[in-house]
Structures are given as C-alpha cells and as structure tokens.
C-alpha cells in the first residue's frame, strides 16, 4: 500500500518536473533552446564515438596501414618534443627539490622525490599535455579540413565509415603510443634529475640511482603506466570528435583545433586527479 503510494508520488513528481522542464524550454529564447539541444546531441555523438572507435578494431574492415602511419606520426614524430620537455622538467624539478631539501639537510633524498614525482604524476601529465598540443591539434585540424573539403562526405557516399577509417586508427595509436612516449619521457626526466643532482647539487650518483631503484616498485610503476592509456584515449577521442564536428570554414577549423587542445588539457588534469584518487584507494595507500 505504502509502496504503491510512494511510487505514485514519484511518478507525479517526475511528470510535474518533466512538464516544468518542458515549459522552461518552451519559454527559453530560441537560441538557448537550440544550444541545449545541440549540446545534448553533441554529447551523445561524443559518447557514441568514444565507445565505437576503440571497438572498431574487432570488426572488419581493418585499417592496419592507417594505424601504422598514425603510430609513426604520433610516436616517432613526438619523440623529440617529449625528449626536450622531459629533460627540462626533470632538471627543473631536481633543482627545486635539491634547493628545498638542502635547507633541511636532506638533499640526498632528491632522487627519491624526483623519481616518485616523475613516474607517478609529472611524467604522465606533462607528456600527455605535450601530446595533446602536438598530436591532438594535428588530429583535429586534419580531420576538420577533411570535413570542410568534403573528403569525409566522399567516404560516406562510397560506403566507408569515417569512424572506422579515421577515428579508430587514431584512437588505437594514441592508446598505444602515449604509454611508450611516457616511458621514454620518464627515463629522460630521471637522467635530467641525475645530471642536476650529481653535477650541480654534488650528490652521490650511486645513491641517486639506488633511490630511483627503490621507488621502482609495482605501485609506482603501475600508477605511472596506467594513466597514459587513459590520457591517450581521451586526447584521441576529443580531438577526433572536434575534427569531425568542424563547420564554418577557416574560423570553424580554428575553433575546432583550439577546443580539441583546451578540452584535452582540462580532461587530462581532471582525469589525472580522479585516477590518482582511485589508484591510491585500490593500491591500499593511505593519504
């Protein structure tokens, strides 16, 4: 009796809310209403793209050549920028930490703090941000110009699914290449930290490396290597979506490219926080 009464109340409440929402929508300015509709439709399209794109590798046709090309572009093409960014981040971090720890007389522990920071946080995030800047913008502008040049339309007319042909190879490549770049970048950062610790801060080289070895445990490595997979997936999905939704000529292309980089950057930082929180909990580490 009580249960059916409560159900009734809930149904009436939901109906009232729905009709109220409908009235609000009706009374809204036409543009706002259209924007709400467009945003909801856009969000739906984004979810569809981000689910279907990685699943594309399990269904024919397979685009191996495109995937290899993208891996080359994303991986080999990004090595230099990753090297530069990582080297200077490692050196700057080592300098700063050495300076602070010197005040406490603990500068011999620079390696430990640099190592944990680089492997768990700064390495994955900084390389993902560089990757978003270089590869994300490239993906959005390339796909965007294909949309504006009707090349995507031609694919659709000839029965080729642009999601499979353009998005799946990019998402798969980003998922695999960003972790590889992160490992390279982490190694370079640690060498940058080593250079500053040993040659500028005059610490023991063997002690620095022994501390790095100490922090190379499962928890740290797992945290550091899991994040780039998620970042790669997010960057590729956001950038491809922005590229595919390009409209409005050169200005539209600029908007799409900027949005791809800005949204990727924001999502990297938010997801990094969320993943750090989850990983700490899962790995049983107390805060």
């Amino acid at each position: 009796m009580l249960e059916s009464f409560l159900k009734g109340v809930v149904i009436v409440f939901m109906r009232r809310s729905a009709s109220l929402f409908g009235i609000i929508l009706d009374r809204c300015d036409v543009i706002e209403k259209m924007n709400i509709k467009e945003n909801i439709a856009g969000l739906q399209d984004f979810y569809i793209l981000s689910i279907k794109a990685p699943l594309g590798i399990f269904r024919r046709p397979f685009y191996f050549r495109e995937t290899i090309e993208q891996m080359d572009y994303m991986g080999t093409g990004s090595v230099f920028i990753v090297f530069l960014v990582s080297l200077f981040i490692g050196m700057a971090l080592s300098l700063q930490i050495s300076a602070e720890l010197s005040k406490l007389g603990l500068k011999m522990y620079t390696g430990k703090i640099v190592g944990v920071s680089i492997i768990r946080e700064i390495g994955p995030v900084s390389i993902a941000l560089s990757f978003a800047g270089r590869v994300g913008s490239g993906m959005a502008s390339e796909i965007g110009s294909m949309v504006l040049g009707h090349q995507v339309d031609i694919m659709r007319v000839h029965g080729v699914n642009p999601l499979k042909k353009l998005v799946t190879p990019r998402v798969v490549s980003a998922i695999f290449m960003l972790p590889v770049l992160t490992v390279i970048g982490d190694a370079v950062s640690l060498f940058g930290g080593y250079y500053i610790s040993v040659f500028v801060s005059h610490q023991s080289a063997s002690f620095y490396w022994s501390q790095i070895r100490d922090i190379m445990d499962f928890k740290n490595l797992f945290s550091g290597i899991l994040k780039p997979f998620m970042f790669g997936y997010l960057i590729a999905c956001i950038s491809c979506y922005m590229g595919l939704s390009t409209k409005g000529g050169a200005r539209g292309l600029r908007r799409a490219t900027t949005s791809a980089v800005v949204l990727s950057t924001i999502m990297i930082i938010i997801s990094d926080f969320m993943m750090t929180r989850i990983l700490l909990f899962v790995l049983g580490e107390t805060v």
Partner: peptide, 23 residues
C-alpha cells in the same frame, strides 16, 4: 540509419566542388 543509407547511396555518385580528392 547510416548503414541502411549505404544501398541508397550506391545509386548515386557525387563530384564535389574542387574535386574533394584525398590529399
């Protein structure tokens, strides 16, 4: 749907302005 449209699109072919060639 997009997959159902494939058969319809097979009846046509289109030449866009500027050709829309894959660059």
């Amino acid at each position: 749907s997009e997959s159902e449209l494939r058969d319809v699109r097979m009846k046509f072919s289109i030449v866009f302005q500027e050709g829309a060639l894959f660059d």
